[in-house]
């Protein structure tokens, strides 16, 4: 199917915070109460629409266990967006955010949009991390923040789509070099940057190539 842009995402965060469930809810619109461990990385994809344009999302869901870090790190490169997920019912998953963020910043391209996600918002009675704490962390580190529930699907669409919107805006502003696929963005086959009828920022991106760094 034709698309204007392809964005690549990576989902990161401690083991058991619900990364795979978020992806499954987003791609298949369903919840798997018991979800087996992710080994290495798993792949998912979905088409969304932003500003009337078809955007293809390709998403790498990574294993959270420390042992896999050497493998999963290689997926930061080439990602335009990252969903950094913690579990609002497990304080330690929130405490590890700094480490995750350092890792992400160190191994990704500097323009990668990072969305902070406090997952399992349906488990209010077991909450250990206040929403305000998530908001404060996000503010402090320049991230977008949302609480989601992969179980009820609350904010799941929004989390993925708002990340795409941020990336899309950055393209419009000419921040991303869209000719460099290493940034995790690809222009659709019918939307070459040299095509004058290109919708959106394709042409701009082309001219921004040298200046983005």
């Amino acid at each position: 199917m034709s698309y204007a842009y392809l964005f690549k995402y990576i989902i990161i965060g401690d083991t058991g915070v619900g990364k795979s469930c978020l992806l499954l809810q987003f791609t298949d619109k369903r919840f798997q109460p018991v979800h087996d461990l992710t080994i290495g990385v798993e792949f998912g994809a979905r088409m969304i629409t932003i500003d009337g344009k078809q955007i293809k999302l390709q998403i790498w869901d990574t294993a959270g266990q420390e042992a896999f870090r050497s493998i999963t790190r290689s997926y930061y490169r080439g990602a335009a967006g990252a969903l950094l997920v913690y579990d609002i019912t497990r304080r330690e998953t929130f405490n590890h955010l700094t480490t995750w963020l350092e890792d992400a910043r160190q191994h990704s391209n500097s323009n990668m949009v990072i969305m902070l996600i406090g997952n399992k918002s349906d488990l209010e009675s077991r909450r250990e991390v206040k929403k305000e704490e998530g908001e404060a962390f996000a503010r402090e580190h320049g991230l977008v923040f949302m609480e989601t529930s992969a179980k009820t699907a609350a904010n799941v669409e929004e989390a993925f789509i708002n990340t795409a919107k941020e990336i899309y805006e950055k393209i419009q502003e000419g921040v991303f070099d869209i000719n460099n696929e290493a940034n995790g963005i690809k222009i659709g086959p019918q939307h070459s940057p040299t095509n004058p009828s290109l919708p959106g920022a394709g042409g701009q991106g082309g001219s921004q190539g040298g200046g983005c760094c």
Partner: peptide
């Protein structure tokens, strides 16, 4: 702790493991 949170997630389609 890691094992403890992983084992209940094993083989979700097989009742024996629940």
């Amino acid at each position: 702790h890691q094992i403890h949170i992983d084992v209940p997630r094993m083989n979700p389609s097989i009742p024996l493991f629940q």
